[in-house]
Structures are given as structure tokens and as C-alpha cells.
């Protein structure tokens, strides 16, 4: 990979403990040359934004399988803007109905990757959008 190594925060918001997807994506992105920070479980939106700013990341990926996506994505977007970090891109994945994904994209989420997404697709998306 040429030039800057992009920094990505993979985060698990809320009470949900399903972390297979988050971990597989974190590892896949790291292998593809990204610098990856994984928050671990049970993070509040405030903690996630704090970590994103502290770690100076280019993008935040949220993984939510508990159905709380319509609360957490908007909250993270909002707090990022409030903290003057609205340029950090937010993307995500999980068990998210298509209608909700469309709505989240209208709110400013860059992309929602559902089950079955190849990591290669996420890698090329991040390269395209962050370059």
C-alpha cells in the first residue's frame, strides 16, 4: 500500500456481546494494511467518540447485532460533530434491515455492510472513500 496508513476504530456499542463480526473485520483490515484499534465490548457513544479522537482515526466502524442501530449510529454521528470531529467517517455492519440502512445513510453513515460481505469489499470501499 502506498502513502498514509489509514487508522480505523472498530467499536462495539451498547450491551450487545456478539463480537465475531467485529473481530473478523478488525483482523481482516489489519491484514490488509490498515492500523486497527478495537474498543472491546459495551462502549457508550461518548466512549467511542473519545477513542476515535484520541486515536486520531480516519473512520469508525460500528458493529451492532442487537437491534439498537437506530440509536447508536445517529448518536455517534452527533457527538462526533459536537466535538468538531465530523470529518471522521462512520460505517458499520450487523443485523440491520435494509430500510434502516437506507435511513442511516441519509443521516450520514457512509455504508452498512451486512452479513456475508467479503472483507475485500470493505477494504476497497475504505481505500476509495478515504483516499
Amino acid at each position: 500500500m502506498e502513502g498514509k496508513r489509514f487508522r480505523i476504530l472498530i467499536a462495539k456499542p451498547g450491551l450487545d456481546g456478539h463480537d465475531r463480526g467485529a473481530k473478523v473485520v478488525a483482523r481482516g483490515l489489519a491484514e490488509a494494511g490498515f492500523e486497527v484499534i478495537y474498543t472491546g465490548l459495551h462502549q457508550t457513544a461518548e466512549q467511542i467518540v473519545e477513542a476515535a479522537i484520541q486515536e486520531d482515526v480516519d473512520a469508525v466502524g460500528l458493529s451492532i447485532l442487537s437491534g439498537a442501530h437506530m440509536t447508536y449510529f445517529p448518536k455517534v454521528l452527533q457527538i462526533l460533530r459536537e466535538r468538531g470531529a465530523g470529518d471522521i467517517m462512520v460505517f458499520g455492519g450487523g443485523i440491520i434491515p435494509r430500510e434502516d440502512a437506507e435511513e442511516l445513510k441519509r443521516m450520514g453513515v457512509a455504508e452498512i455492510f451486512g452479513p456475508g460481505t467479503p472483507i475485500a469489499d470493505i477494504v476497497s470501499f475504505l481505500h476509495k472513500r478515504l483516499s
Partner: peptide
């Protein structure tokens, strides 16, 4: 999730999770 984690529905950390999964 709040019930699984031992939290009431009016706990601040339950926001957005009540009755969801």
C-alpha cells in the same frame, strides 16, 4: 439485551435496546 445484562428498561445504558432483540 438490558434484561440479559441485568439492567432495567429505564437504565441510561438500556437506551435503544429495550424490546429489540
Amino acid at each position: 439485551m438490558p434484561t440479559i445484562m441485568g439492567r432495567d428498561s429505564d437504565d441510561p445504558l438500556s437506551e435503544g435496546e429495550v424490546g429489540r432483540c
